[in-house]
Design a binder for these strands. Structure first.
Length: 296
DNA sequence: CTGTACTCCTGGGGGC
DNA sequence: TGCCCCCAGGAGTACA
């Protein structure tokens, strides 16, 4: 399947919302893993902490999926660059929140299978698939998860009301690194990835190469407001975008057609009245897309 | 402490 | 058709 989700905050949030009704209350009957290592080794007691217990609820922190269990542990899942989660029952993929990308057939990059019994007695499996294996599954004590090795250093959630321009500026401090790289740094703010950083900077008309600490109070506030706006729009569109991924021909969903700058090299800048052209540069070894005319 | 370069992987696409 | 090279959502680590 040529389709892909882009696991930044909106995509993870969409997966979480889709999993929630299926996983809540479901009992884990069995767990199996492939021979391949993911980014992080499974904990020694991975199986013992999962099998026989029930999921309580599913949530999100940064780009991590957090599924709380009824044994005071939480299952932590990160999709990395290419991780996918599917639910399969009776050999058929269950379309959860319209997110379905393949049939129930096993594929070679399936790494973790969690067999479940739903509250209605129905049997199904959660399958973690990840070709590049940059993702991870781990466990943490639910009440100490914010201090766990994965979460301890994380910055504020971008959609929290407490995340303001002033907070962004205080997290940036004296850093002179390009604002693009500062926004990708999960210690400053979580959830933003390469796509939404490009989109937010374009919307705020801020040049990606600006020193992070050079933003004015107003610019920081605008950047925060626009980040929230693009993330909320992407979450709202997430379902319909992902829905299209179920198409057998692999047609991509609609959201990438709405990108202002990301992957739009050579195209006219979509800003009103702007006659600029979207350019591509490399920052921190990764592509940045922007308009040099309206992003200052 | 900051900033950067590199690393882990597979697969798709373009050029020749 | 088949190489070969470049590129791709993330983020930890090492090093100047």
């Amino acid at each position: 399947m040529p389709c892909s989700i882009m696991p930044e905050l909106p995509e993870v949030e969409t997966v979480v919302r889709g999993l929630q009704p299926f996983l809540s209350g479901a009992k884990i009957a069995n767990v199996s893993t492939s021979q391949h290592k993911l980014r992080f080794p499974y904990p020694d007691d991975f199986m013992q902490c999962l099998i026989g217990f029930r999921f309580l609820n599913v949530g999100r922190r940064a780009k991590y999926i957090v599924a709380d269990l009824d044994n005071e542990n939480s299952l932590i899942i990160h999709l990395g660059m290419s991780g996918r989660i599917s639910l399969v029952g009776n050999g058929q993929t269950i379309s959860f929140d319209d997110y379905a990308y393949q049939t129930g057939a096993m594929s070679k990059h399936d790494h973790v299978t969690i067999d479940l019994i739903g509250t209605g007695g129905d049997e199904f499996s959660l399958i973690y698939n990840d070709p590049r294996r940059f993702g991870l599954l781990d466990l943490a004590r639910t009440d100490k998860i914010h201090k766990s090795r994965h979460f301890a250093h994380l910055g504020p959630e971008p959609l929290d009301d407490e995340f303001t321009g002033a907070v962004l500026q205080s997290k940036i401090g004296k850093r002179v690194t390009p604002i693009k790289l500062a926004l990708l740094n999960q210690e400053i703010v979580v959830g933003l990835g390469n796509i939404y950083v490009c989109e937010a900077l374009h919307m705020a008309h801020i040049h990606p190469n600006r020193h992070a600490n050079s933003l004015s109070v107003n610019e920081a506030a605008l950047l925060v407001a626009n980040s929230k706006q693009i993330l909320r729009a992407a979450i709202a569109a997430g379902g319909s975008t992902l829905k299209d991924f179920a198409h057998a021909d692999g047609t991509l969903g609609g959201f990438q057609n709405e990108f202002l700058a990301y992957d739009q090299t050579g195209k006219p800048c979509p800003s009103p009245k702007c006659k600029g052209i979207i350019e591509r540069i490399i920052q921190g070894g990764r592509s940045t897309f922007f308009c040099g005319k309206c992003q200052k």
